[in-house]
Design a protein around this nucleic acid. Structure first.
Length: 563
RNA sequence: UGGGGCGUAGCCAAGCGGCAAGGCAGGGGCCUUUGGAGCCUCCAUUCGUAGGUUCGAAUCCUACCGCCCCAGCCA
């Protein structure tokens, strides 16, 4: 387990309550959980909730959690996803030790159990086509009809099943079905398919098989093989629980696991659907699975969200059985909480405006000491060069400034953070009347940012020495979808994409120490937000991704007065 | 009209017969060398609705209403 994770608090939810009760009452002597992804896509923040739940419970109750790939459908699964999933779970801070498994590890056993079921007269080979099976299944309100092949003899079924395995039939020619109850109100009991023919190579087993077990026939039995005590999944599997139990009861499995369901995560302003995420990637709406706007764990990581923040978020939202949509602000709050404590502060000017300090000696350079993190004095200080010509943020100057604008304006004095107080004395404009430079004077007595007479400017600005600033590209990120509920009210999901989810800024400037920042490092650009170094950075040409802005009460007030 | 779930504040969520935790968002204030952070404070006389049981109900019972999931040889 990650050493950074907070000490186990008294987290409580209905799943943990069940586990605790099972342990207390002796229904279980230990806890074994599992996180069972299908390797058909990348993990996203919704999976993080499940990962934190499963690994979290195992850790809290001194048990263990397995990572098991649910790889029973080779037509959708790929090794690339297997590798990415492992990396993402590890990044999140969890460790499965020796317990890495694949449902495909159990194909031989599963096959034997299917034979067993046939031998008991509880499963049969069906020659109906997929369409016919659907017709025979009935509807939600009408019972289904039994397949004409349901009465085959055990011998014939066994023979046919062996020939299915041997590859004698094409895809879709036959399936094996459990013989349960075509009239059940639970459609999963209407003779569910447990084996289908798929002449497709499997990422793990290659061409060893041309028949593959269905999810229902593989999941519970895999749990039983691994000695899983609490098989935790999402709500849509509730209807499958009776079937899960049926296989456990009717097969000579080594243990009897139980399934519990919780509500999957939904988040505003994004989409957590593998199908949609795949399309965003394949159709080029984003830079890839790791695009900083994607809710994938790899995207979130590239965006600069720390794993600890994701874990905090998971703990914050809890676990329950009711469908819900969590506001993305909660995730952002958790991330800011971690970053505020850990991110080093740096100066960066995104939209530069030249400032000349007229009474500052030309050619002089002072190394100002600046705190790396006011929240954490142990982070120390750094030197930031100060000189006669500076850059400040264009937004930090206003020619006709209202009273509540606490920044630079003609005749007004502000503090340049950790440097000096400066007063704007003149404004230089170009032929179009646009401000291109500010002339200021500084007060030598305010070195470091404090005045001997204790006067306190209302505003404090970040700045950069013109002769020392390092150019950088900065990518501003915002919610992937403009609507909190993408695709709601009949809208096309893709029409809700936020056109301003990514804004690339060229010509930004950062302080010298950032010239060789390492990829993945997240810092706070003072007064602007948290930014991390993107993998596309090259030597001398850093690229920063805006992880999150700082909360900005000034911007909020502005938004309210100018609707 | 079948089966399975769920309804506590704008959002997430405790609560398990004794008189509505906490967090996010939002409002107000203090403080501040980040309009950040931090701190203080306000924000459900009421728990989908209607009845009933009880000295007492968000918690128990009944009925109703609303929302979600299920008719893949996906998971």
């Amino acid at each position: 387990m990650d050493t950074h994770s907070a000490p186990t608090s008294e987290k409580s939810d209905f799943v943990r309550d069940i586990v605790a009760a099972d342990l207390r009452d002796g229904r279980a002597s230990g806890v074994v959980t599992r996180f069972p992804p299908e390797p058909n896509g990348y993990l996203h923040i919704g999976h993080a909730k499940s990962i934190c739940l499963n690994f979290g419970i195992a850790a809290e109750f001194s048990g263990r959690c397995h990572l098991r790939f649910d790889d029973t459908n080779p037509v959708k699964e790929e090794q690339e996803y297997i590798d990415a999933i492992e990396a993402d779970v590890r990044w999140l801070g969890f460790n499965w030790g020796e317990h890495l498994y694949y449902a495909s590890d159990y194909f031989e056993q599963l096959y034997a159990w299917a034979v067993d079921l046939i031998g008991q007269g509880k499963a049969y080979v069906d020659d109906l086509s997929a369409d016919e099976i659907r017709e025979y299944r009935g509807t939600l309100t009408e019972p289904g009809r039994e397949s004409p092949w349901r009465g085959r003899t055990i011998e014939e079924n066994l023979n046919l099943f062996a020939r299915m395995r041997a590859g004698e039939f094409p895809d879709g020619a036959r399936v094996v079905r459990a013989k349960i109850d075509m009239a059940s109100g639970n459609i999963n009991f209407r003779d569910p398919v447990i084996y289908r023919i798929l002449h497709v190579a499997h990422p793990r087993t290659g061409d060893a098989w041309c028949i593959y077990p269905s999810y229902d026939f593989a999941h519970g039995q895999s749990d039983a093989i691994e000695g899983i005590t609490h098989s935790i999944c999402t709500l849509e599997f509730q209807d499958h629980r009776p079937l899960y139990d049926w296989f456990i009861e009717n097969l000579p499995v080594p243990s009897k696991p139980h399934q519990y369901e919780f509500a999957r995560l939904n988040l505003t302003h994004t989409v957590l659907s593998k199908r949609v995420l795949l399309r965003l990637v394949k159709d080029g709406y984003v830079r890839g699975w790791d695009d900083p706007r994607m809710p994938t764990l790899t995207g979130i990581q590239r965006r600069g969200f720390p794993a600890e923040g994701i874990r905090d978020f998971a703990a914050m939202i809890g676990v329950a059985r009711g469908d819900s949509v969590v506001e993305i602000e909660m995730l952002e709050h958790a991330v800011r909480g971690v970053l505020n404590r850990t991110a080093l502060r740096r100066f960066a000017v995104l939209n530069p405006l030249k400032v000349v300090i007229e009474n500052y000696p030309a050619g002089q350079v002072e190394e100002m000491d600046v705190m790396n993190n006011p929240e954490d004095p142990s982070a120390g200080t750094r030197k930031v060069p100060f000189s006669r010509e500076l850059w400040i943020e264009r937004e930090d100057f206003m020619e006709d400034a209202p009273k509540k604008f606490f920044r630079l304006a003609p005749g007004r004095e502000v503090r340049l953070r950790s440097a000096y107080f400066v007063t704007c004395t003149d404004v230089v404009k170009d032929a179009d009347g646009d401000v291109i430079e500010l002339r200021c004077t500084y007060d030598p007595a305010t070195r470091g940012g404090a005045a001997p007479d204790d006067r306190r400017p209302k505003g404090t600005l970040h700045w950069l020495s013109a002769g020392h600033a390092v150019p950088a590209e900065v990518r501003l990120y915002d919610h992937l979808f403009a609507s909190p509920f993408p695709g709601s009210e009949g809208r096309d999901l893709f029409d809700d994409l936020n056109p301003e989810s990514e804004t690339v800024l060229e010509g930004c400037l950062v302080e010298p120490v950032l010239a060789d920042a390492t990829v993945g490092e997240t810092v706070q650009f003072e007064r602007l937000g948290y930014f991390c170094v993107d993998p596309e950075s090259t030597a001398g040409a850093p690229v920063f991704n805006r992880t999150l802005t700082l909360k900005d009460s000034w911007a909020k007030a502005q938004a309210q007065t100018t609707p």
